[in-house]
Simulated scan of single mutants.
Amino acid sequence: MRRLFLPLFFGIVGTAILLKLGFWQVDRLAWKEAELARIDAKIADAPIAVPKAPTEAQDEYLPVTATGQTGAEELHVLASSKQTGAIYRVVTAFETTDGRRLLLDRGWVKPFAKDDVRGTVSATIVGNLLWPDERSKHTPENDVAGNTWFARDIAEMAAILNTEPLLVVQRDIVEGSPEITPMPVTSTGIPNDHLQYAVTWFGLALVWIVMTLYYLRRMRTREKV
């Protein structure tokens, strides 16, 4: 029995740790689903006027509306869509009737339409505030000279277009600009892998139990021999 104690001890401890990690991921799954539901509700809420000094912590995804005119200069952000493949987001300045200049993500065009000339549009837009987090160590540097961006870097875009460092992602099609398809903010891009992680930890716990029982059985068999 003394020889069996140590593998049995590690078997119990290892199983307990793996099960604890699995249940922790179950708790995280419930939290993430509640957070996604909150974000979805906020995105779809009734739009309000753009706040004077919004913050990312308080106003991420806030629905807003503003009346004004789009700028003529466009910044093109390379992106992709499951339905259409490679696309370019079109980001312009948006000058409101009260004199503010904001960044406006108007939507997307296909690569062949990237350099088409599109006029300015006067409209009331509805969208959501967003602070994109699209840059990682693998993201190429923006080709500003060639007007091909690989991430919506708000500060850099605002400096080029002479706007506030504030991005509104357009939600609806604006009359007079049908060639640009809106790509509204959704929660679908927010990762939620906690169920997969939970299944992985519970699976490892099951494997650990089986291996422990197998090892104990072999030791018992050897002792009898």
Rank of each mutant, 00 (worst) to 15 (best):
A49Y: 11
A49V: 12
P51K: 11
P51I: 12
K52Y: 05
A53W: 04
A53T: 07
P54T: 05
E56F: 03
E56A: 12
E56S: 12
A57N: 15
Q58Y: 15
E60A: 13
Y61S: 05
L62T: 13
L62H: 03
P63W: 02
T65C: 07
A66S: 04
G68D: 11
G68Q: 09
Q69S: 01
A72D: 13
A72E: 14
E73L: 13
L75S: 01
L75D: 02
L75R: 10
S80Y: 13
K82R: 08
K82I: 00
K82F: 00
K82V: 02
Q83L: 01
Q83N: 07
Q83I: 04
A86H: 13
A86Q: 14
Y88W: 04
V90A: 07
V90N: 08
V90R: 02
V91Y: 01
E95T: 14
T96I: 03
T97I: 11
D98H: 11
R101I: 09
L104E: 12
L104Y: 10
D105C: 05
R106A: 02
G107L: 05
G107A: 03
G107E: 01
W108F: 10
V109T: 15
F112E: 15
D115Y: 04
R118L: 15
G119P: 00
T120A: 08
T120G: 05
V121S: 09
S122I: 03
A123Y: 05
A123W: 02
I125T: 13
V126G: 00
G127H: 08
G127Q: 10
N128I: 00
N128R: 00
L130R: 11
W131L: 03
P132V: 01
P132G: 00
P132E: 01
D133E: 15
E134T: 07
E134L: 03
E134I: 01
R135C: 00
K137A: 06
K137C: 00
H138V: 04
H138G: 02
P140N: 11
P140M: 07
N142M: 07
D143S: 12
D143K: 03
D143E: 09
V144K: 12
V144L: 09
A145P: 00
A145L: 10
A145K: 14
G146M: 04
N147F: 15
N147S: 14
W149Y: 08
R152V: 15
D153A: 07
D153N: 07
E156T: 04
M157P: 00
M157L: 09
A159G: 08
A159Q: 02
I160P: 02
L161I: 06
L161W: 01
L161D: 12
N162Y: 05
